[in-house]
């Protein structure tokens, strides 16, 4: 890909015009929102928008001193880590079963797992709310972990399954003739071979967990279990309205790590996002 390749009749000016327009469209709101994070509250909602504000670190001090930001961050990290662990423990054997064995009902089971992804959170929200209330788990990160794990289990299983299907059978057959059992083959051969797939699945699951909103809103009713996503929606100063500069900073705090991780797995992203259906 040394030179710019093009097809006959394609205008390069149009190509770059389209791409840079969209690039600007993507970045302008983000840059503007970043500027919101570093301006005093008085310059956010004004009669005329201020495009070149005075620099202020008010919001930065505010999120750490006025709100238990460290706690929200800890809740988010714990919920992400816990739910992804649950997912991997359940999904790896399931994916192995779905990709390596021939048995009755295999396709149906696979599709059932996939179909749980289609469930709108609002449909199960009320029963789940009552379930956790009866279990006394409302307002704890344990409840969040369990729900997040359930949301992502289908995705994680399907992504890992797709990577497992790609591994040539000969790789296992050699070990099998040497007498290794199925579980040992899974642990010693398959898992190391599909590590990029497992990481991809974990990252995609992580993104969805950070984004999850409705369940968190219902399950976490006090700051004890707030994650960043829902904490944002509660950054309202009562009569003062929404505290936008704090929201902007928190949004960027959550954005940076996700951005870095996603760049690291860029190559696998399209495959992960389609649950393995598109091999990019």
């Amino acid at each position: 890909m040394a030179s710019i390749r093009r097809v006959k009749g394609e205008n390069l000016y149009i190509r770059y015009l389209i791409l840079s327009c969209w690039g600007l469209f993507c970045l302008m709101p983000v840059l503007w929102f970043l500027s919101i994070g570093f301006r005093p509250r008085t310059e956010i909602i004004t009669a005329q928008p201020i495009y070149f504000p005075t620099l202020s670190l008010d919001a930065w001090h505010m999120i750490w001193s006025d709100w238990p930001m460290a706690k929200y961050l800890r809740n988010s990290v714990a919920a992400i880590f816990g739910s992804v662990m649950i997912d991997l423990v359940l999904a790896i054997p399931a994916a192995y079963s779905l990709s390596r064995y021939e048995y009755r009902g295999r396709e149906d089971i696979g599709f059932y797992i996939l179909s749980t992804r289609m469930m709108a959170p609002a449909i199960v929200a009320i029963p789940i709310f009552f379930l956790f209330r009866n279990l006394g788990l409302l307002d704890t990160i344990w409840a969040l972990m369990l729900v997040y794990a359930a949301i992502n289990l289908s995705i994680v299983t399907w992504i890992i399954r797709s990577y497992m299907t790609d591994i040539p059978r000969e790789l296992e057959d050699a070990a099998r003739t040497d007498g290794a059992g199925d579980l040992r083959i899974l642990w010693e051969i398959i898992i190391p071979a599909i590590l990029p797939g497992i990481i991809t699945a974990a990252v995609i699951a992580m993104i969805f967990v950070i984004n999850e909103f409705l369940f968190t809103l219902l399950i976490a009713s006090t700051p004890d279990a707030y994650t960043m996503s829902v904490a944002l929606a509660n950054f309202t100063g009562g009569s003062d309205g929404v505290i936008y500069n704090a929201i902007a900073l928190v949004a960027f705090l959550a954005f940076v790590p996700v951005f870095l991780v996603v760049i690291a797995i860029q190559k696998h992203l399209s495959r992960g996002l389609t649950m393995g259906a598109v091999k990019g």
């Binding site: 969209w22 690039g23 993507c26 970045l27 709101p29 983000v30 503007w32 929102f33 919101i36 956010i44 909602i45 004004t46 928008p49 993104i207 950070i210 984004n211 909103f213 960043m228 996503s229 829902v230 944002l232 929606a233 309205g241 929404v242 936008y244 929201i247 902007a248 928190v250 949004a251 959550a254 954005f255 996700v258 951005f259 996603v262 760049i263 860029q266």
Partner: peptide, 26 residues
């Protein structure tokens, strides 16, 4: 791809606030 990815990696609640502020409040 990296540039275009940026909006997708913000939390939806944050994106909602960006647009609320940009179009309604400010």
């Amino acid at each position: 791809r990296i540039i275009f990815l940026v909006p997708m990696l913000f939390m939806p609640s944050a994106v909602a606030f960006i647009y609320k502020l940009m179009f309604l409040d400010a």
